[in-house]
Design a protein around this nucleic acid. Sequence first.
RNA 1: GCGCUCAUAGCUCAACGGAUAGAGCACUUGACUACGGAUCAAGAGGUUGCAGGUUCGAAUCCUGCUGAGCGCACCA
Length: 586
Amino acid sequence: MATVLSIADAVKQRFAQAISIAFPDAADSDPQLRRSDRADFQANGFMSLAKPLRANPREVAVRVLENLAADEVIANLEVSGPGFINVSVTDAAILERLAARAADTRLGVGSSAAPGVTVIDYSQPNIAKEMHVGHLRSTIIGDALVRILKFSGETVIKRNHLGDWGTQFGMLIQYLLEHPGELDEGKESADSGPSMSRLNRLYKASRALFDSDTEFANRSRLRVVDLQAGDEETVASWQRMVDESKLYFEAVYANLDVLLEDNDAIGESYYNHMLADVCADLEASGVAVRSDGALCVFFDDIKGQGGEPTPLIVQKSDGGYGYATTDLAAIRDRVGMLGANQLLYIVDSRQALHFQMVFETARRADWLPDDVRALHLGFGTVLGKDGKPFKTRSGETVRLMDLLDEAVDRAGTVVSEKSPQLASEELEDRAKQVGIGAVKYADLSTSRTRDYIFDADRMVSLNGDTGTYLQYAYARIQSILRKTPEGVTPTAHRDLALEPAERALGLLLDEFGATVDLVAETFEPHRLCAYLHNLASAYTTFYEHCPVLKAPTREVMETRLLLCQLTGQTLRQGMDLLGIGTPERL
RNA sequence: GCGCUCAUAGCUCAACGGAUAGAGCACUUGACUACGGAUCAAGAGGUUGCAGGUUCGAAUCCUGCUGAGCGCACCA
């Protein structure tokens, strides 16, 4: 593994040196180097540098430029406009990096100099309940961030904070104990798989009985107490539902092709035995106080409707605990036991106030020291085409499995039209990669914070700015590489003059590492999507203008093959960081 | 009432305070015995919700307004 210094960084180094010579007092001033449509790069930093010096920006740029010269990287420099410096780079610098990146398993991308430990909390389905569209974004975004942070060198601990505890389980357990055969095999209809089908039936049956039979409802409430107390029979019954649900979750995760495993599933129940201690500590330290019988934490700047302060309730007046307490226990555990210095929560934006209060409470309790970062990475609500929360025609929440099945079905139709000779097994595999990839790309390519319109037609569309377009570009590259003539090796010939389409592609390939770094810092996967789409577009332009296998000379052919190869490697690596598959053929 | 998020092409969305605000879809026009056309090239489409302010420079930062979504005491 060899880290490759990007052209942008090489140019920045030269600018930094030139600035420190020309303006020693402003030696660390940022040259603000950006890509440009007037040259390869433009440096914007001299207008702002001129301000405190009370100097003319163009003259500042000229003085910096006097300390720069063309060399093996820089081909040409010119001052332009109010004080920009336009920079062109040499073809040799591009070619040299292409070769170095293609030869490296990480494409020459370095790891973080100071990696930390990140705990990332995402997906969070509820036991005995069907997963729906609301879980889709959390799972997909979380999965992509896990992959990206790992790649950047971070130690990543995944946490699937299952909703596996609470009063609703009294009803389910009571029903299961009274109807011991309810979760047995053989009585299910195949909709979301047998596990979920059995749980659905149990849920509906117990709910119906709970609503119609007050005696059963009372028994259910008592059952909650047994569960809290750890009664053996009750816990065994609860465990059975948890196990059954996990089978279903694992099926969904396998279908979605995400990294979550059974080990990552640390549900609310895991923290149950810590809750009393958490509350005792908060009360003893004075962070929390009693109010109307509940144990509460108050905040100066958080007020409710009547101007009354809105507290975080860590213990209800009946002695029970809510999810705030569980979240606090989890923070204490993740920082204290797991050694995390960064906590990420991939949760619906509507929970913003909750996390604000939880984080502030944890800070006051000293469970969250200043050097540990805690971030709620919220995301928008999933809406239907009408702009309203996504529902089926009958008004029910849409099941995640149905969504994925639909995407895969449509992808399968198109794949089979294009490749009718495929064996059904292979067709199924490709349809899955295309369909799931389309769903993920549609979700990840839009910025996280906004509401998200779920448009199945657009998302599964195989044209345009979609995951399929990227997969197609990748497959075409592989097709060319397979046809490489005997004895020809992809090689960057340094002395070749590059055509515009080749330069554009080469410069873009050199930016992959910076893009990944940016996403790892900002937690914004859509920037990686945009990069990959640009890359695929640049490739198709290159592909149209620069014949590869019919190239005029052997050197040109080998160089273009290397461009193809590195584009393929970069697409595959980038899509892998998004959790999107890259089939060799579509 | 207070708070959070948002408002950009007909639609769905981008744009780390930099020069002429970009993609995709849809639309118009070109290129097909094709290194896989699931493609490419070109065109048209904009007072960045409104009004001020800061700045050499604002879609971006600040203030106000309008409009939308969401959240505000024992559900999670």
